[in-house]
Simulated assay, not measured.
Amino acid sequence: MRYLSKAEIMATEARCIYCTALHTTVEHMPPISMFRGRKRPDGLVFAGCAACNNGTGAADLVAGFIARLSPRYDQASWQIEEAKARAGILEAQAPGFLGEFFDPLQRTTEWFPTASGIRRPLTVVRLSGPLTRAYLDVFAAKLGMALYRHHCGHPLPLGGFVMCGAYLNAGLAPDTAKALLSIMPDQSGLRQGRRNHADDQFIYRFNTDGRSVVAALAQFHDGLYVSASAFRTTDPYGQLPLLPNHRRVQPGDLPGMMPYRSRLRAVQRLPLVKRAGPSPS
């Protein structure tokens, strides 16, 4: 499979995959920061605008941080080490998130079986904090729109929507996972040849008609799961029920979903655009 160059991606798209704006950047979804040492196989690269791409970067950082936190990882693992190394940039670009995420009120102790069958207590974090929930909603919606573009061949229409939600490692109930996976027969990820892949860091199951709908359940490392279903029309089956802990997102919604302080910092980082017009006298 030949992957498109940046110039080819920009030339074949009419707009940002997340909104109606003119595309000015390329968007990697999942982001490069999601992968160990930023070594990401090629594929799943799209055209985006600066407001959606750069403006939602904090959501990518939060998702990559959470994905690396799992009760199954040893404290000396590379996942935990990379998560710790991101604390500074997270505090700068997603202010308040770390304090909320590690708030003792957001944590409970549950018992999980080990490989030997012996159960041991592990700390489980709930995703009920407003900052954590907002960042993960943005990330999940981005994934849904990106996979729609990838599998259906065109950006999600403005009248369409994504129904999306995120779960921590221990938060995806087995019966919920079984129900979702039962309608998703296919599996995909990022692969370049037989050996260059990142299945241990990103893989997803999906189902699609290739034209107007795609449903996917993605796993990021061992700490984060994302459910995302994208539909070409707002009501394809007549009052489609909203799944628990999910929300509906439409193209153009993403920047406004970001927490205010992250949104403000993102605007400050956006490049200035020179507009044609008369020179000042």
Rank of each mutant, 00 (worst) to 15 (best):
95 P>D: 11
275 R>T: 15
275 R>E: 15
87 A>Q: 14
257 M>H: 00
64 G>S: 15
237 Y>R: 15
71 P>S: 06
189 G>H: 08
118 I>L: 10
37 G>A: 07
10 M>L: 15
277 G>H: 13
198 A>N: 10
266 A>P: 11
68 R>E: 03
163 M>C: 15
266 A>H: 08
185 P>V: 02
174 P>D: 04
214 V>C: 02
16 C>P: 07
206 F>L: 04
172 L>Q: 06
112 F>S: 14
160 G>S: 09
224 L>E: 03
243 L>M: 15
273 V>Y: 01
183 I>A: 14
223 G>C: 00
236 P>H: 00
237 Y>G: 12
84 K>F: 05
29 M>Y: 12
146 A>D: 05
27 E>D: 14
201 Q>S: 01
239 Q>T: 12
124 V>G: 03
18 Y>W: 14
259 P>S: 04
216 A>M: 06
160 G>Q: 09
103 D>N: 07
241 P>E: 12
2 R>G: 04
138 V>L: 03
205 R>Y: 05
77 S>C: 03
92 A>L: 14
217 L>C: 13
131 L>R: 07
7 A>G: 03
190 L>K: 04
226 V>S: 11
222 D>A: 11
266 A>I: 07
57 G>V: 08
115 A>M: 08
117 G>I: 10
172 L>H: 05
211 R>K: 14
231 F>D: 11
196 N>W: 05
229 S>Y: 14
148 Y>Q: 02
84 K>A: 08
41 P>G: 09
111 W>Y: 13
99 G>P: 02
28 H>F: 01
105 L>R: 09
96 G>D: 04
218 A>I: 06
207 N>C: 13
24 T>E: 05
271 P>T: 02
154 H>P: 10
125 V>L: 11
53 N>H: 11
126 R>T: 08
147 L>E: 05
16 C>R: 07
72 R>W: 08
263 R>W: 11
236 P>C: 04
103 D>Q: 00
21 A>I: 08
193 G>L: 01
194 R>G: 02
279 S>K: 06
45 V>N: 09
120 R>D: 04
132 T>E: 00
209 D>M: 10
10 M>W: 00
206 F>I: 06
22 L>Y: 07
95 P>F: 13
35 F>E: 01
148 Y>P: 04
92 A>V: 08
60 D>S: 06
154 H>N: 13
191 R>W: 01
80 I>W: 03
149 R>T: 07
231 F>A: 10
243 L>Q: 15
212 S>V: 00
38 R>N: 13
115 A>W: 01
59 A>G: 14
197 H>M: 00
199 D>E: 09
34 M>C: 10
146 A>F: 02
238 G>Q: 03
139 F>Q: 14
171 G>P: 11
140 A>I: 12
30 P>I: 03
130 P>T: 12
11 A>E: 15
30 P>L: 06
10 M>T: 09
241 P>M: 05
221 H>I: 05
146 A>E: 09
79 Q>I: 02
52 C>T: 02
192 Q>S: 08
252 G>Q: 05
147 L>K: 01
1 M>F: 04
64 G>C: 12
35 F>S: 04
45 V>T: 15
243 L>G: 10
79 Q>W: 05
161 F>W: 14
37 G>M: 06
226 V>E: 10
271 P>V: 03
